[in-house]
Amino acid sequence: MGMNTKAASDLKTIPKNSRKTLRISLFWKQIKKQQVLLWMSVPIMLHLALFQFVPLWGWLMAFKDYHIGQNLLEADWVGLKHFQTLLKHDDFLQDLRNNIVMNTMQLVTGTFCAITLAIVLSELKGKWFVRTVQTMTYLPHFVSMVVVANIFVMLLSPDGGLVNQLMIKWGWIDEGIFYFGQAKWFWYLHTLILTWKGFGWGAIIYLASISGIDPSLYDAAQVDGASRWQRVKYIVIPSIMPTLVLLTILDIGYLVTGGFESQFLLGNVINADYSEVISILALRLGLNEGNFSFGTAVGIFNSVVGMTLVLIVNAIARRYKANLF
Score class of each variant (00 low, 15 high):
residue 8 A to V: 06
residue 191 T to W: 02
residue 28 W to A: 04
residue 39 W to L: 15
residue 18 S to Q: 15
residue 206 Y to M: 06
residue 270 I to N: 07
residue 101 V to Q: 05
residue 173 I to S: 12
residue 213 I to V: 14
residue 233 K to Q: 11
residue 35 Q to D: 04
residue 122 S to K: 11
residue 120 V to H: 05
residue 218 Y to V: 09
residue 288 N to P: 00
residue 156 L to I: 10
residue 28 W to T: 04
residue 56 L to S: 01
residue 104 T to Y: 07
residue 264 F to E: 07
residue 75 A to G: 02
residue 96 L to H: 02
residue 262 S to L: 06
residue 235 I to H: 11
residue 17 N to C: 01
residue 46 L to N: 02
residue 102 M to S: 14
residue 159 D to E: 14
residue 319 R to G: 15
residue 308 T to V: 10
residue 11 L to Y: 10
residue 158 P to K: 06
residue 78 V to F: 03
residue 129 F to K: 03
residue 33 K to G: 03
residue 253 G to A: 06
residue 320 Y to Q: 12
residue 111 T to F: 06
residue 118 A to K: 12
residue 25 S to M: 04
residue 165 Q to R: 13
residue 295 G to N: 03
residue 210 I to L: 15
residue 279 S to H: 02
residue 112 F to R: 08
residue 20 K to L: 09
residue 130 V to A: 08
residue 186 F to E: 11
residue 233 K to F: 10
residue 302 N to G: 04
residue 254 Y to A: 12
residue 181 G to Q: 09
residue 3 M to T: 12
residue 290 G to P: 06
residue 237 I to Y: 06
residue 4 N to L: 15
residue 18 S to K: 15
residue 187 W to L: 09
residue 305 V to Q: 01
residue 265 L to E: 11
residue 217 L to R: 14
residue 319 R to H: 10
residue 29 K to N: 14
residue 198 G to E: 13
residue 47 H to Y: 14
residue 125 K to I: 05
residue 150 N to K: 12
residue 101 V to D: 03
residue 231 R to D: 01
residue 7 A to Y: 10
residue 142 F to V: 12
residue 292 F to W: 05
residue 16 K to N: 12
residue 318 R to K: 15
residue 185 W to H: 03
residue 84 Q to M: 06
residue 15 P to F: 09
residue 17 N to K: 14
residue 297 A to R: 00
residue 295 G to F: 00
residue 198 G to V: 01
residue 262 S to E: 14
residue 273 D to C: 02
residue 181 G to P: 13
residue 246 L to Q: 00
residue 251 D to R: 14
residue 98 N to E: 05
residue 103 N to Q: 11
residue 324 L to T: 03
residue 9 S to F: 12
residue 203 A to Q: 05
residue 289 E to R: 12
residue 104 T to K: 02
residue 23 R to A: 12
residue 262 S to I: 13
residue 245 V to F: 09
residue 168 I to H: 02
residue 134 Q to F: 06
residue 308 T to G: 11
residue 42 V to A: 09
residue 243 T to F: 03
residue 290 G to R: 07
residue 204 I to K: 06
residue 97 R to T: 05
residue 140 P to N: 09
residue 226 A to D: 08
residue 25 S to E: 11
residue 21 T to N: 12
